[in-house]
Amino acid sequence: VLIDPTTGRPLGFPEDGYPKPQGDFYCGVGAENVAGREIVDTHLEYCWDAGIEITGTNAEVMIGQWEYQCFGHGIDATDDLWMSRYILYKIAESYDTSVTLHPKPVLGDWNGSGMHTNFSTTKMRDNGGKELIKDICNALDKNHKEHIKAYGSNNHLRLTGLHETQHIDEFSWGDSDRGASVRVPVHTINNNYNGYLEDRRPGSNADPYKIVGALVKTLQSCHK
């Protein structure tokens, strides 16, 4: 989330009170619905110049909140994500803007900030199927508490069961379910359950190395 350092509030928020309710901001266009696009576009260009594969950006549910997708293989993805964060902070400086990675920067009826993690293995992509997906999700369920420990601080403020999240103390998975802990994407479903899964639990401030470490440890039990 991009922050106005003079108010300590997200870009687009008034000094007092709140903007209009969420709805028009997600993937929004127009000055009344978007704040900080120039920063996001500049960040995208600098990441590309640095060899970081950003595959997309979009305005998120809360005004001043943005998402970018960082693609990579294995440990390269975690390296690139850390560097992309550094670049974002540096660019925001030049616009007299701050950045917060807090998973719930505004309390109340506002979406938090996650770091949804798409992951797959060769077996999941080439020889998966619904039974393998089920086995993986059952293993993630079994190790849910250990994953939550690795998925960032203050994440309980975000994972409430509201605002497109599952409660932090519960685990669920489902086809195209944006309120689940783990979502099976349409692409995977339409490909006979061969493809990737989306872990929606990590908070935006999580350490990507810890996320990957937790996932690898759990996935090993399903790939023997």
Rank of each mutant, 00 (worst) to 15 (best):
V1F: 06
V1Q: 05
L2W: 02
D4Q: 11
P10A: 04
P10R: 00
F13L: 07
E15F: 12
K20R: 12
Q22T: 10
Y26S: 04
Y26A: 08
C27H: 14
V34L: 11
A35C: 11
D41V: 08
D41A: 11
L44A: 02
C47V: 06
A50D: 14
A50R: 10
T57N: 10
E60D: 10
M62K: 01
G64F: 00
W66T: 05
A77P: 05
D79V: 08
S84N: 13
R85I: 11
L88R: 00
Y89D: 12
K90G: 02
I91F: 01
E93W: 09
S94K: 13
D96L: 04
T97N: 09
W110L: 01
N111E: 07
G112E: 02
H116E: 05
F119G: 03
S120D: 08
T121K: 12
K123Q: 15
D126Y: 14
K134W: 01
K134V: 04
D135L: 08
K145C: 08
E146N: 15
H156M: 13
T160C: 03
T165F: 03
D169E: 12
D169R: 08
D177H: 06
R178E: 09
G179L: 06
S181N: 06
V184D: 00
I189F: 12
I189K: 12
N190D: 15
G195R: 05
Y196R: 10
G203W: 01
S204I: 00
D207C: 09
D207H: 10
P208I: 06
P208H: 06
K210G: 09
I211N: 00
I211Q: 01
I211W: 01
V216A: 04
S221R: 03
C222Q: 02
